[in-house]
Design a protein around this nucleic acid. Structure first.
Lengths: 352, 352
DNA sequence: ATGTTTGATGTGTGCGCACACACATTTGTT
DNA sequence: AACAAATGTGTGTGCGCACACATCAAACAT
């Protein structure tokens, strides 16, 4: 079925009428090969579609590949923890290949922390970067620097299409927003009002959230939505404040039948609904983090839209490995599936 | 972060005061080691948590692992094709590890074909088996034989819990049924009638389908369903016959608002609905095969419940590899996530 | 002319392991 | 007792490759 005899360097050497050293030089572009021999070896390589034995290569090579993972610091149970776990998993899977992964954390609410972190990286010792793309401008300038040094880098979470990233790993946020709308409108009529809660901590709203809103709105337009969307800004830690706001808006607009939050903090509204004992509001949020899972189980969150964070982390490292070690070209767009998680199926999520 | 100096066999040997040969014999249980040295080496192995360098091992070893994959033959675009693709992907990923995978196909509508296929396998040359569990009794007796020979085997698709399979890879069919019900009842009231179509080809109904029905019924009970379920048997290839039956039942019971099919053939009803231009029936089925995808896109299938067939195939081979090569113990239950696919998200499915 | 740099090429060693084999020791047999 | 068989133990080789090094010829400078 598979294998058979693989072609080795010695075979190539014999075929091309040179020594293994020459073949080696050609393969690794080390120079010091005459033009005649170079083409001769290249011809043979192409002819037999030579694929190096990675196992032997990895055993012989002393080269250690340094991959830097730059993501926000996270508290236990938060979204980025799952991405981080995916990275860990990949490290375990590829530990034999002389892989060294260093995780660097910045404060996602503090752009300066990201900036100083970037400044402190000694890029001379870095072979690849996995980058959480939260701060648009800084990511762009950093990308330019990586371009200049020819260090491959992969974006995770949300994409910045203009840049020369080797790959983007994540979901299509626009579609993610459409799906939220689609789910909501299974439960409510197009005349019902909808609450959209934003969770503010700093002034900035993430690109993700913006794109999701766009997708959501696109869906509303497509079904000729007749209701009204109300927006509230909640605080990540001030529950009393949030409850006041939510009480007010629900009282003022009794026609609100659904709520949506475009980041992973749906539990803030979910816990409110639980406290007020209201199951008449269809709440849809994003990302299966612990607090959301609990509320999904109890029925206060209708559905969560998940983007397989562990797989994101895993694939990020895997792609960099394949690029660095295999030297292989890979597709530069790895849109991951968008999962719809409900009470029944969330438990099985992310086996990988 | 990771790596550092790994402990090698020579290190172990030095620590235990023996030669590498002795350590090797202990590691591989080849015998010919005195009790004293055995325990001494074992102690050291445990102490340092020795983890063999799989890269070196694989390079040195000439042993080829033969894995046999036994699944139904499939036409292009059918369900088992996706499982097969997952197997292929795994073969590619692990090709360096002296892996030989042989796929054997049987006729899923002909038990005898499965039986004769099993009989012809020369088990002496087989190191692991991935087995599609369609024919209960034959799978059981074959499993006994594999037990006797201590050949690890993995079930794929549906489980037979009594057996000593190394692992089962697939979804929880019961939950799969519940989810179908859950989705339907977002669109219909609990007074509406439901059509359940079975696709007959042989008399047998799959365990999968039975379990899904159980889960579906459990959900009906839980919500105190007031409507009526009608069952029809359709033919896989006789469209005219199917249309007559469907016309009749829909005419006779206009209160039917939804339909469910517990295998991958939802397209049979979906195509009927398309032909009759009816979008008022909520149709839910299983598995993202080509024909279903088309109807999902066009809106004649409301949702598909997917069981990540490619991942099933991939993980099946991967688990066997890890067991054979790593010799590692692995969890014996690998329930995969159940995906809810709708028009918006099906396109991204199964990137892996 | 002789030394010196430079480029082109081949050879040798070791990565960590599996496994064959040589050798040493004990046990069993008549 | 002698000698075979079984059991214990260490050494050596090679898997396919990367990379340091040795070799050798040609080009250049003094």
């Amino acid at each position: 079925m598979s294998n058979c005899k693989e072609i080795r360097i010695v075979d190539i050497a014999k075929m091309a009428g040179v020594s293994v050293g020459t073949v080696d030089r050609v393969i690794h572009n080390r120079g010091r090969v005459s033009a005649a021999n170079y083409t001769r070896v290249m011809t043979v390589l192409k002819e037999v579609d030579y694929r190096p034995n990675m196992v032997a290569r990895s055993l012989a090579s002393k080269k250690v590949y340094h991959i830097v993972v730059i993501i926000p610091a996270y508290a236990p149970g938060e979204y980025w923890e799952y991405i981080s776990r995916g990275v860990d998993r990949a490290v375990e899977d590829f530990r034999q290949y002389h892989l060294s992964v260093t995780k660097l954390y910045f404060d996602q609410f503090n752009e300066a922390s990201f900036e100083s972190l970037l400044r402190d990286i000694k890029l001379d010792e870095v072979d690849g970067v996995l980058l959480g793309t939260l701060f648009y401008d800084l990511v762009c300038s950093f990308s330019k620097e990586l371009d200049a040094r020819k260090i491959p880098y992969v974006y995770v979470d949300s994409d910045i299409p203009g840049e020369r990233r080797m790959a983007f790993i994540g979901t299509d946020s626009l579609v993610g927003g459409q799906i939220a709308a689609r789910i909501l409108f299974r439960n409510i009529t197009k005349e019902a009002d909808i609450l959209m809660a934003r969770i503010v901590h700093t002034g900035a709203e993430s690109t993700q959230a913006k794109n999701r809103l766009s997708g959501f709105n696109a869906y509303l337009t497509s079904i000729d939505y007749k209701g009204c969307m109300y927006r509230v800004d909640l605080d990540l830690s001030d529950d009393r404040h949030n409850y006041e706001i939510l009480d007010a808006i629900f009282h003022e607009h009794p026609n609100i039948k659904a709520a949506v939050i475009f980041n992973s903090k749906a539990y803030i509204v979910g816990e409110y609904l639980k406290n007020r004992n209201r199951k008449d509001i269809s709440l849809v949020g994003y990302d299966l983090i612990e607090k959301n899972a609990q509320l999904l189980e109890e029925g206060y969150i209708e559905a969560l839209i998940d983007q397989r964070p562990r797989m994101q982390g895993y694939m990020g490292v895997k792609l960099l490995c394949e690029r660095l070690i295999l030297n292989g070209e890979i597709g530069n767009n790895n849109l991951l599936p968008i999962d719809i998680l409900i009470k029944e199926n969330y438990k099985f999520s992310e086996t990988y």
